[in-house]
Design a protein around this nucleic acid. Structure first.
Lengths: 194, 194, 194, 194
DNA sequence: TATTAAGCGAGACGGTACGTCTTGTCTTGGA
DNA sequence: TCCAAGACAAGACGTACCGTCTCGCTTAATA
C-alpha cells in the first residue's frame, strides 16, 4: 500500500544531486560575473562541468535554471510585517520589496520579466514564482487591515495590489526615475487611500 | 547655410528611399505573420529584398527597425481629451491607451519593453518613443486639472502618472488579469484621488 | 580439474539466454528495417528490451552483435562442391558465394567490411568469421584438384584464392559492374589457369 | 552573349581562397596526426580557423574534404609505363600503385573505401576520383598490348582490370597477407595470362 | 534453506559531434 | 557612395549516441 512506491518505481539511476547543485552554483556565478544576457545553456554546462543533455533533461532553457537557482540561493523570504496599522504595514512591505530590487536582484528580475514576454511557458513559472506569491502576501496584509476596518468594505484588493506593484515594476523597467524611499512612501499612501 | 548639406557633402549615391520603405513594409508584414520573436535581421533583409549591410548601416538591430516601422505605420496619435473635468479626461485618455494595447499592438509593445531590458541603447529609444510621450500628454492633462484647482497644489504629477501607467503595464506584462474598462475606470479614479 | 569452474566460481546468476536471443532478434529486425548504418547500441537495447550495460557486458560494439546475429540466423553453410573436376568445383563454389552476396547479405557484408577498416578488434573477428573460412574451403578445393594433377605443383594456392575473392569483393565494394554469372565463370577460369 | 556571365552573375562576395586552403591544410594535418577516424567537421573547422557553416557550405561531410585535400596535395600522378612489353608494363604499373598504398596513403584509402560503403553520395566521388581513373590507365596499357598482339583478341579488359585491382584491394582491406613485390609479380603474370 | 554474488532493466551521467541558425562584418560588381 | 548579394568567423542551439555509472530487483548455485 505504499503509494510512493506505486507512483515512483524508482527504476534506473537516480538523479545526481551533485550535478544539480553544480548547475545552480554555476548559474549564479555566471549570472553575477557576466549578467543574464550572457548566460547560455552551453556556458552553464561547461562552468558546471556537466553535459548539455543533462541540462536539457531537467530544464527547458536558461530562465528556468535561473529561477531555480534564485530560489535555491534565497536564504529567507521577505516576511509580511504586522504593525497593527495598515498603511505602515503596506509601506514597510513595499519598502523591503523595493530594497531587494534596488540593492540586489533588480537587474535579474528585469531580465526574467523580459524573458517571460518571449517564452510563454516561462511566463507561467515566473508569475507563479515571483509575482503571485508577493501579491498574495500583500493581499493578506490588506485583508487584515480590512478586518480592522481600515479599508472600505467594497475595496478591490486586487486593484490595490496592482496600484502598489504596478508603479514599482514600471519604474524598474523604464528606469525613468529611481525607486527611492519617498516614492514608496507616497505610493503606499496613495494605494491605501484608493 | 543648410547645415545638413554642410556636414554631408552629399557626395556619392544618396540613401535609397525605396529600400527604406521596403524594410518598413517587410518588418510590419513579418511582425504580423510570425510575431516579434521570429523577427531577425536576416529575415527582414530577405523579405525586403535588401542586403544585410544596408540594414546594419541604418539600424543597429531588430527593435530599432520595429520602432521606426510602427511610427511609419501609425496613422494618428492618440490625442488628449479636454472635457473640462480632470477625472473624465484621465479616464478617457487611459481608456484609449488600453484599447490600443488590447486590440492592437499590445503584444508588440510587450516585446519591445522586454527587448529594452536587454539592449540599453534601445531602452532609451523605447522610452523616448512610447513611454515619455504618453506620460507627457498625461501630465499635461493633470496640469490643466491643477490649474482648474481639481488637484491639490502639492500633488506629484510624476507619481500620478506612474500610478496610472504602472498598473496598466503590470497587467499587460503579467497577464494575471484583463485590461478591461472597469479596471481603467477604477484606476483613473484612484490616481486622481491620490 | 575443470578449468572453467576454477576460473569462474559460477556464483551468482548465470547469463540470461532470453536476453541474448532478444538481442539477436532485435539486431536482425533493425538490420532489415533500417540498414546497418542506422544500427546503434542504444537502438538495439531499446528494441530488445534490454539494458545498455547488458549489451556492453557481452559485446564491445554494434558490428560484433551483427556478426553473432548473422551466425545465429545462418541456416546452412555454403558447402564445397566435389564434382571431380577442379574448374567446375571452383566455379560452382564462387557462384554460390556470389549468389549469397547479390541476393542476400551483400549490403551487410559491405558494411561489415567497412567497419573492419575502422575498428581493428573487429577486423580480426570479421576476417575469422567470413573471410578466412571461405578461403579455407576454396583452398581445400584447390588441394583436391592439385592431388588429381589438375594444378601445377608449384601453384600458389593462396594467390589463387586472392585471384578469386579479390575481384568479387572489388566489384561488391565499388559497384562499378554487376556480379553476374558470366563474370564468375570467367573469373574461375582465369584463376585456375593461373 | 557571355555564357559565363549569364550563368554566374557573380553577385556577392566571392569564395575565399584563403579559407579553402586553410581547410585543405588543416584536414591533411589532422589526418596525419590523428588518423581518419578522428577527423570531424568540428575539428577541421577549429584547426582551420574557419566557421562550421563555411565547411558545410562547400562540402557535405568529412570524406569529401579529405578527397579534395588529397587531390590538392598530390604532387604527381602515377604515370603509365610504356616499355613495349605488356607484362612488364602491367607489373610496373601495379608495382607503383602498391608502393603508393603500402608506403603512403594505404590507411587513408582503406578508410575512404570504407566510408564509401556508408555514404552513397560519397561512393560516387570516391569511385570517380580513385578507382575509375586508375582502371582507365590500366586498360589503356592493356589496349596497347592488345594492339601489339600480346593479348587474345577476345580478352575482356574490364575483367583483367578487376583481376589486377581486386586482389590488391582485397589484401589491403583484409590484411591477411602483405602487398609485397613477389605478390604483384605473380598477380601481373596471372592477369595477363587470363 | 539461506546466503550471496552476479546478471538484469532502467535510465541518468559527462562527453563529443552533429548540422542548423543568427549575428555582425567583409568583399564583390553594378548603379 | 550606396546598393544587392552573399561569403565569412564566431558560436549557441537542441539532438543523438557513446560508454560508464548507479540503482533496486531477480535468480540460481553454494554453503
Amino acid at each position: 500500500m505504499n503509494e510512493t512506491k506505486a507512483k515512483l518505481p524508482a527504476a534506473g539511476r537516480p538523479r545526481s544531486e551533485k550535478s544539480r547543485e553544480a548547475v545552480m552554483t554555476a548559474a549564479m556565478n555566471l549570472l553575477r560575473a557576466k549578467g543574464y544576457r550572457e548566460l547560455t545553456m552551453e556556458g552553464i554546462a561547461k562552468e558546471a562541468g556537466v553535459g548539455k543533455p543533462t541540462l536539457y533533461r531537467w530544464w527547458p532553457g536558461v530562465p528556468f535554471i535561473v529561477v531555480e537557482a534564485l530560489k535555491h540561493n534565497a536564504e529567507s523570504e521577505i516576511c509580511a510585517p504586522d504593525t497593527g496599522e495598515l498603511a505602515r504595514d503596506v509601506e514597510q512591505y513595499l519598502q523591503s520589496t523595493c530594497r531587494a530590487l534596488t540593492e540586489g536582484s533588480g537587474d535579474i528580475m528585469r531580465s526574467l520579466m523580459a524573458e517571460a514576454q518571449f517564452v510563454p511557458a516561462f511566463a507561467d513559472l515566473f508569475r507563479e514564482s515571483f509575482i503571485s506569491s508577493r501579491r498574495q502576501t500583500l493581499i493578506r496584509i490588506l485583508e487584515r487591515g480590512a478586518q480592522r476596518g481600515e479599508l472600505a468594505k467594497d475595496a478591490d484588493h486586487e486593484l490595490i495590489a496592482d496600484l502598489c506593484y504596478g508603479p514599482i515594476w514600471y519604474r524598474l523597467l523604464n528606469k525613468h526615475t529611481e525607486l527611492d524611499d519617498s516614492f514608496v512612501r507616497s505610493l503606499a499612501r496613495a494605494a491605501v487611500r484608493a
